[in-house]
């Protein structure tokens, strides 16, 4: 199909879709309406379980099973990326070259790395109290480690990032979530039921299993993102085609 024909087909389809969408939007509840039956019930249930962050309560208590599946999607995606981006025949791995970094960036990185790491862990640990949780905090932790790549070079990053333990961490995080659910069952309740003591609203130990599940997800996401970024970075920095040496764009990117 020509580009013109494709565009024409898209315009027709887009017009039809627009009509259908606007028709549906008119029937939606008014924007800003006070009528939120599910929201009201979710807030009530969150407060009943002493979880200050109602969103975390929905994710890790009321819909904990859905979040298990969501975590599994992430797990499967990391696995898929590792399989897709493995070193194939005809490629060789060359050691990354040391890179020169300006002292200012180096100092900033060294300064920011522990701060960013702490912020990430804080976001995971306070998921039941303040906005955040395992998914958000896990990404912050994983990104914090990569400050070392910016501040030093790829070899420095590889020293604090042996991939094996992170792959294990990914699996352990995923397994910990399932085990928490099974433990609730062994305790005579249903899978992933919030069986731990709920504590006092607004304290670090409130929320029961929400804390545990947040930690499990935080670990899985942090390790998963590290592994995921490593597979992409390896493609750029380390893996080369055997035949014609370095292709344009595959050299060290900095």
């Amino acid at each position: 199909m020509t580009r013109r024909g494709r565009l024409l087909l898209f315009l027709i389809a887009a017009t039809v879709t627009t009509v259908l969408l606007v028709g549906a939007f008119v029937e939606l509840p008014d924007f800003g309406t006070n009528f939120h039956p599910y929201g009201d019930r979710a807030v009530h249930a969150a407060l009943e379980h002493r979880t200050a962050n109602a969103v975390a309560s929905v994710n890790f208590d009321q819909r904990a099973l859905d979040t298990l599946v969501e975590e599994t999607i992430l797990f499967a995606a990391v696995l898929g990326a590792v399989v897709l981006l493995r070193q194939v025949t005809g490629e060789r791995r060359r050691p990354p070259r040391p890179a020169r970094v300006s002292p200012a960036i180096r100092r900033l990185g060294v300064l920011l790395l522990p701060v960013a790491l702490l912020v990430g862990l804080y976001v995971v640990a306070h998921g039941q109290l303040t906005p955040g949780g395992g998914f958000q905090g896990g990404v912050v932790v994983a990104t914090a480690l990569h400050l070392l790549y910016v501040a030093a070079d790829y070899r420095a990053l590889e020293r604090i990032r042996p991939l094996g333990p992170y792959e294990v961490g990914d699996v352990v995080g995923e397994a910990a979530y399932v085990v928490t659910g099974l433990a609730a069952m062994l305790g005579g309740s249903t899978f992933l039921a919030n069986v731990l003591p709920w504590g006092t609203l607004g304290t670090l130990t409130s929320g029961g299993t929400v804390v545990v599940l947040n930690a499990a997800v935080g670990m899985e996401v942090a390790c998963g993102v590290v592994v995921l970024l490593a597979t992409f970075l390896d493609q750029v920095v380390e893996i080369d085609e055997e035949s014609d040496g370095a292709r344009p764009g595959t050299g060290e990117s900095r």
């Binding site: 800003g32 309406t33 006070n34 939120h36 929201g39 807030v43 969150a46 407060l47 200050a52 962050n53 109602a54 969103v55 109290l129 303040t130 906005p131 609203l201 607004g202």
Partner: peptide, 10 residues
């Protein structure tokens, strides 16, 4: 929800 804030009760 009009005038609503984040559902975080900390």
């Amino acid at each position: 929800r009009d005038g609503g804030t984040a559902p975080v009760f900390a």
